[in-house]
């Protein structure tokens, strides 16, 4: 099997003594649009953070596929993976411009010390055009609406020119226009063979937007193609039960 972009194997993550994720095993297929859903506190953000090496697991591992189709840890192919954190996680009063935030998407390719060059600035400009904010380059980020912020974050991820895009709630609190633009761009990425993982909160749009779905609530409740896995039973299992971790299904 060479079409696995990310392989999560028996991943267990705990903050202090409290397990947040319990024995998660998942394989994400390349070239798919994948939704990760679950209630608040289910460990969705923790799961994607452990895929990005930001959280170290108590047990288990996460590997990504490199260009030679070998499974390697995240640290060896950072530049092939783009990350969009929740847009509420940063201070939007930070003194900087839209263009400079998008340029941060190039920093990983540049490495330490090196400054962005013309090529990087051109890429940033292109990506701003793609997300529909071409005239916003010099705008201060404090002046953006919620939807515009999210599009700037997407432009930054696009500027990473990655193979895999991991996004935490990119559609939370955005306007219809932004949602439309973001989903159109993500579909295009998938059609180019890229893999897109999205932490998603709106169950009503799952069937329209995604190929695959993972239900998690500390454990994996269900995972698979949306047309087979997205059903009332799995939704109920994920959202309407007081679950005790470690007691199994």
């Amino acid at each position: 099997m060479n079409d696995i972009a990310i392989n999560i194997d028996k991943l267990t993550v705990a903050y202090d003594a409290q397990p947040v994720l319990w024995n998660i095993s998942l394989k994400f297929q390349k070239g798919k649009m994948i939704a990760i859903v679950g209630p608040n506190g289910a460990g969705k953000s923790t799961m994607i953070k452990s895929m990005l090496g930001l959280v170290s697991p108590v047990m288990g591992s996460v590997t990504h596929q490199d260009e030679n189709q070998k499974a390697v840890p995240y640290s060896e192919l950072k530049n092939r993976i783009a990350y969009v954190p929740q847009n509420t996680s940063v201070d939007w009063n930070f003194p900087t411009t839209v263009r400079d935030v998008v340029l941060m998407g190039r920093y990983g390719h540049l490495g330490w010390f090196k400054r962005p060059r013309k090529k990087d600035k051109d890429i940033a400009k292109q990506m701003l055009l793609k997300v529909g904010l071409p005239t916003f380059a010099k705008r201060q980020i404090s002046q953006l609406s919620g939807g515009q912020r999210q599009r700037v974050f997407l432009a930054r991820a696009l500027a990473q020119e990655a193979e895999v895009y991991i996004m935490d709630e990119p559609l939370a609190g955005v306007d219809m226009k932004t949602e439309h633009i973001i989903m159109k761009l993500l579909k295009k990425l998938v059609s180019e063979g890229k893999t897109v993982l999205v932490v998603h909160h709106d169950l009503q749009t799952v069937e329209t937007y995604f190929d695959e779905i993972v239900f998690i609530n500390q454990e994996v409740i269900a995972a698979g193609p949306v047309d087979q896995t997205f059903n009332k039973q799995n939704i109920d299992l994920t959202y309407h039960r007081d679950r005790n971790v470690g007691e199994g299904g």
Partner: peptide, 18 residues
């Protein structure tokens, strides 16, 4: 650039290797 990105968005900075 490192000061800027780690101050503005530490999680993103860590993910891209700073």
């Amino acid at each position: 650039k490192e000061l800027k990105v780690t101050t503005f968005d530490p999680a993103f900075a860590a993910a891209i290797g700073f």
